[in-house]
Design a protein around this nucleic acid. Structure first.
Lengths: 210, 210
DNA sequence: TATATTTACGAACGGTCGGTCGGATTGTAG
DNA sequence: CTACAATCCGACCGACCGTTCGTAAATATA
């Protein structure tokens, strides 16, 4: 954007391409993403994409950033409106599952899909995805540490372990949901974490949560 | 095989192809698997593969079966040598993580990779993978139910929830390990489940486990 | 208005993909 | 041995891939 808020040349196209590419990549995979399909879906020419990104890999990296922005706006930001502590940790888990329930992306969790796709394929994309995961775990661990600092965790409870716990339940929920059927697994993921939080926290608002 | 145990014609080739294809598919993805690469890696012709499987999809389905057989031999079977109950549930988790630590497949967990890959892509392969996941969860739930039947779970502990818990920690361990670095996550996954089992079981052998 | 730069396009390129085909080779049964 | 079927191969096909190029339109700058 320019300083006065107007879109610079081509920015509208760039955004539309990224939105479309994110959807297609979440379904077909980040590598299975076809530039032809992206172009056709938007009614633009395939060669025109190379005016914005020098290669497919550059577009793929931009798609990762787009996914992160979407995640920030629709999961992290709403959760940060909840007061810090165990309640906020719970809010992250809850918003996260709500994000999949809402089927914002038809292919499930973009990051999980992409992460497993590039598991064993070194390169810029793998590194970027690994960085995203590291940042995410740092974020969760920070929230757990905040809760500990507020004295909301029972003695002996490891904040990092709690963050790992939240992450594993989230990943497992994402894994089963799109295939086996949504509702039971989502509910299960919520109930499981709530049970665990009740076991490790002294925060009365969690104990009262249903 | 024939009745007297000898290999029938082509069975050696068939097995070698499946082994190679499983390795390549775990790295490049089940769909990213290239028949040319499989053939080249084995020094056979690509067209010869079509004498054994009528299409790429048929080979992909066979690869899934191969992965299941490997999983049965190296994870399930050893765990079943442990007495039933919470100890066996723990053994499954332990053998599972050991399987990834041993890097039997260079690409991490084949089932997790394939599952996320075909998340949102209906068809025979997606259905087969979903079936594998269902069977696996049924297996875990059965083990947890056994433990409950033996009176090893504290009152109020839900066996299905325990099985879900084991699965989520396993998935999360697999997710992080190949990228962020192996040892810490593997150890974390073990410690996390051990803590949880100590909270839900009355079995002294688990309480003594280190 | 005139100029420079970005954006977009159609056409084409080399390469890889899954798959087919006819024929050569191999193993098995009679 | 002969006869038959399974196996394997090289050559080839059409489709799709990411990418490049020359060029035309659109936009910013002067």
């Amino acid at each position: 954007m320019t300083q006065d808020g107007r879109l610079i040349r081509g920015e509208r196209t760039r955004g539309a391409v990224l939105d479309q590419a994110l959807v297609l990549a979440t379904v077909a995979g980040l590598d299975g993403l076809s530039l032809s399909q992206v172009a056709d879906a938007l009614g633009v020419s395939k060669s025109g994409l190379f005016a914005h990104w020098r290669s497919k890999e550059a577009l793929q990296l931009a798609v990762i950033d787009q996914a992160r922005a979407q995640w920030r706006d629709q999961v992290i930001r709403p959760a940060l409106e909840v007061p810090a502590g165990v309640r906020r940790l719970w809010a992250v888990h809850d918003r996260r599952i709500a994000f999949y329930e809402a089927r914002v992306l038809p292919g499930g969790c973009f990051f999980a899909n992409a992460h497993f796709e590039f598991n064993a394929r070194p390169g810029a994309i793998r590194d970027r995805l690994a960085g995203e995961l590291t940042d995410w775990m740092t974020f969760l661990t920070g929230l757990a540490g905040e809760a500990a600092g507020l004295g909301e965790l029972r003695p002996g409870v490891d904040p990092a372990g709690l963050a790992y716990h939240v992450e594993s339940l989230g990943v497992c929920a994402v894994m089963q949901a799109p295939v086996v059927g949504a509702a039971p697994t989502y509910a299960q993921a919520r109930r499981q974490l709530l049970e665990h939080l009740r076991a490790v926290t002294t925060d009365p608002t969690i104990l009262e949560q249903t």
